Computed example of a mutant assay.
Amino acid sequence: MIRVLLADDEAMIRAGVRAILTADPGIEVVAEAGDGRAAVELALSHRPDVAVLDIRMPRMDGLAAAEELRRAVPDTAVAMLTTFGEDEYIERALAGGVSGFLLKSGDPHELIAGVRAVAEGAAFLSPKVAHRVITELSSGRMTRGTSARARTRALTPRETEVLALVGAGLSNQEIAARLHVVEGTVKAYVSAILARLEVRNRVQAAIVAYEAGLVAEPGE
């Protein structure tokens, strides 16, 4: 069972998201909050698998709450609820350790898939958000690509292979099945990759994989 903390200052949004998530028998919403500070306090007491946070909330916004959660409850994965057009927050959220971006206006199945993905240790970006990120990265792709390729040269061939699969959005379990190894081995590889690349989470590692040309753009 995936235990979820949901935080949004709009009660109707919370109700809608809760209804979507709990329609999946494998997901349970264990706590709800109307502001970022309350979300952090509830996470400390409930220790959820995933915290789904709205970006804009009173007392403490979702980005600040995400940063606090990564320090205080590192085993809780964080996914941000966003509206289309809040691109200016993406870079800060990625730097703060957020594992996923879920559009409030997205497909309900997308919301469930996103929560399941980040709970399993994978990264998840709603397709529209992913397109924005890719477009932004593409504007400086040549320069960033050179830098990313230089960084990935520090990886072993197997680590590079794992990084490419992380960039493709696979969870540890899926990577283990693909490479015919146990999940614990994949976790060790991922930890080594994050350390070698000097990134904080899988989303940042996935971006390096994309910039280095290890992952094809959607449609390629």
Rank of each mutant, 00 (worst) to 15 (best):
L163Y: 02
A122S: 12
K104Y: 11
R59S: 15
R132Q: 13
P108Y: 09
G145F: 08
T22H: 09
R158H: 10
L125T: 04
H109A: 15
L170N: 00
E28C: 10
P74M: 06
G100Y: 01
R144I: 06
Q204N: 07
E161R: 11
D54Q: 07
V30M: 04
T135K: 12
L53H: 03
A38P: 00
I112P: 01
T152V: 14
L163H: 02
S105Q: 14
A154N: 09
L163T: 00
A117S: 12
V40L: 08
R196E: 08
V52K: 02
E217D: 15
R202I: 09
A119Q: 04
F84R: 15
D75P: 11
A77H: 06
L194K: 07
P218I: 01
I134A: 08
E10C: 00
P25T: 06
G85K: 11
L111M: 15
P25Q: 08
I20K: 03
A72H: 13
M80W: 05
G62E: 00
H131R: 15
G106E: 09
A33Q: 00
E120I: 07
D75A: 14
T185P: 07
V133H: 01
R14N: 04
V162M: 02
E88G: 15
V208Y: 05
T135H: 13
T135S: 12
V115T: 02
G100W: 01
D9N: 10
A206W: 00
